[in-house]
């Protein structure tokens, strides 16, 4: 089952990759891409949304739009949605490209200056949290991935759902995107799970394995 347009793993019909030569590819191909990247990062530093909410904002488009848009167009769509939903910008301001003095930024909002921005980028934002529980699975355990029957943001790819694999490694207790994208800051145990290509695809590729990071709620124990 497909989650939505962004969930691309294993889909057919996407065509050749046609990579640009490494030595020739610029970081940004156009000025507008450069600016979308910059304002998305800068606005993200206001702390009004987290990375999972930002991803979800890009993913909530119609499938056709997500696939038709270039990468940074999807970023732009996501940023506009986040600005509107957080109330930082009103629909009227966006439409008129003009600030409305009746909608000033919240007085407690801290706007990063260049030094702050540098520090924020340098510090990063670790996703691990302290855990009060023991992980349910250990390395080597056989597991299968639950079929998903709810909507909303998730990081379990459709191609792995319903497929059996094995715990490759424990990764720690990490913020759970399925909740975090909807405003709830809580952790779940995270594992690296390995699947044989034969279990994932028909026909499976020879001697190929796919490793996917999975949070505990995605997984079910297989056997006893």
């Amino acid at each position: 089952m497909n989650n939505s347009a962004h969930d691309l793993g294993g889909r057919s019909g996407m065509g050749p990759i046609n990579p640009e030569a490494e030595e020739q590819e610029p970081v940004f191909h156009t000025e507008w891409e450069r600016r979308v990247f910059g304002i998305t990062m800068a606005a993200g530093m206001l702390g009004k949304w987290n990375i999972d909410e930002a991803r979800h904002a890009r993913e909530r488009q119609e499938e056709a739009d997500y696939l038709r848009h270039s990468y940074y167009q999807n970023w732009l769509v996501g940023l506009e949605a986040l600005l509107l939903e957080s109330g930082l910008v009103t629909a009227q301001e966006l439409q008129n490209c003009e600030a409305n003095s009746a909608n000033p930024p919240p007085s407690d909002l801290r706007i990063p200056n260049p030094e702050d921005a540098k520090k924020i980028l340098h510090r990063g934002g670790p996703a691990n949290l302290p855990s009060q529980t023991e992980p349910l699975f250990k390395t080597g355990d056989s597991v299968s991935v639950a079929e998903r029957n709810s909507s909303g943001h998730t990081r379990v790819p459709a191609y792995a759902q319903g497929v059996a694999g094995r715990i490759n490694a424990y990764r720690g207790f990490h913020i759970f995107p399925d909740k975090s994208a909807h405003g709830s800051h809580q952790g779940e145990h995270l594992y690296s799970v390995v699947f044989s290509a034969n279990a994932l695809w028909e026909p499976g590729a020879e001697n190929t394995e796919v490793f996917v990071d999975m949070w505990q709620p995605y997984l079910q124990r297989v056997g006893s």
Partner: peptide, 14 residues
Amino acid sequence: EKGLVNPEALNEII
């Protein structure tokens, strides 16, 4: 214009 983004911070990020 709204003061939500400092243009020098934007340049620093890019």
